[in-house]
């Protein structure tokens, strides 16, 4: 691991510990290691994971939930959620955790909600699965949850279908569906990149509000360095399946790793016109010294 970051940001208790997590996909052309020896801890805080597409940030999030598909293989020296050992948990054990202790918000509500089931029933379904509640209780809880994500007319929205709601509303429905069983950790995988700019901040604010008030840990996965640095407490920078740098979001501008510096340099800055976007210089040594 790098020597950067890991400064104590006042996390009183650790929710999630990950040490040397690797995910390997076996395919026709041999194995692909999508995530290599990733280590981090998560407290009741907001942790950002940034990186380019293919850097392994989404796979890291999915591995924590045991959702890497049939061809994926998860290995870790330690992966612990509270007192539950995730590294040696079978599919059945993961199923109890998903939704109830770790939940995930995906990128585009247009595709991540079942198109032929009303949004209310989809929210209630999570409640019924984990709390074994009656139809009526689940419905009441779903309506409350819709209210909690600032939906004005929950009764009406409950019966609507995914194609009938806007992107911003769809993502709020998604958040309601994922938080209704009161998980400890929320993984948000590019939660706003499919939304209109105008509703992005609104959705983030609602998510932030809920995560804080419920004392949850949040992992925000994004390619957007600006978003992550302004929204999160700490940031992991990933490149080629590895964490190259961990630092506090406020001190991101002081980051040392050349890759992070390169990413920062590529950001557009107000009042500072450039003729040409500086090209990101990659060094194969980054991968070698971390493997």
């Amino acid at each position: 691991m790098t020597d950067t970051g890991m400064t104590d940001t006042g996390m009183t208790d650790t929710l999630l510990t990950v040490r040397n997590l690797s995910v390997t996909y076996s395919g026709d052309d041999g194995d692909v290691r999508a995530v290599r020896n990733v280590s981090f801890t998560l407290g009741r805080e907001r942790l950002g994971i940034v990186g380019e597409s293919g850097s392994g940030k989404s796979t890291t999030g999915r591995a924590i939930m045991g959702l890497v598909g049939q061809s994926g293989r998860i290995e870790a020296d330690e992966m612990r959620l509270g007192d539950t050992d995730l590294a040696h948990l079978g599919e059945h054990g993961f199923r109890k955790l998903r939704g109830q202790r770790i939940a995930m918000v995906l990128q585009d509500p247009k595709y991540s909600l079942d198109p032929v089931m009303s949004v209310g029933r989809q929210i209630a379904e999570t409640h019924r699965t984990h709390l074994r509640s009656t139809k009526r209780d689940a419905r009441r809880a779903a309506l409350e949850m819709l209210e909690a994500v600032h939906i004005r007319d929950p009764e009406r929205v409950y019966t609507m279908y995914p194609h009938q709601v806007s992107g911003g509303m769809g993502q709020r429905v998604m958040i309601a569906m994922m938080l209704i069983a009161d998980p400890d950790i929320l993984i948000a995988d590019e939660p706003t990149s499919a939304l209109d700019v105008t509703v992005q901040t609104q959705v983030l604010a609602i998510m932030d509000d809920l995560v804080r008030s419920r004392g949850m840990g949040l992992i925000l996965i994004s390619h957007n360095l600006h978003l992550v640095s302004s929204f999160c407490d700490r940031v992991l920078v990933m490149y080629a399946g590895q964490v190259v740098e961990t630092c506090e979001a406020a001190k991101l501008s002081e980051a040392k790793h050349p890759y992070t510096r390169g990413l920062l340099a590529a950001l557009p800055q107000l009042g500072n016109r450039r003729a040409e976007l500086p090209q990101l210089q990659r060094d194969p040594a980054w991968m070698a010294d971390l493997a």
Partner: peptide, 27 residues
């Protein structure tokens, strides 16, 4: 489809994901 991942992520059994959600769309 993405919703299959989402329904798994909210903790449903693969059985329910396949026979209720995916099959509902197949109909």
């Amino acid at each position: 489809q993405e919703y299959v991942l989402a329904t798994l992520a909210k903790g449903l059994s693969p059985w329910r994901v396949v026979w209720v959600h995916a099959l509902g769309n197949v109909w």
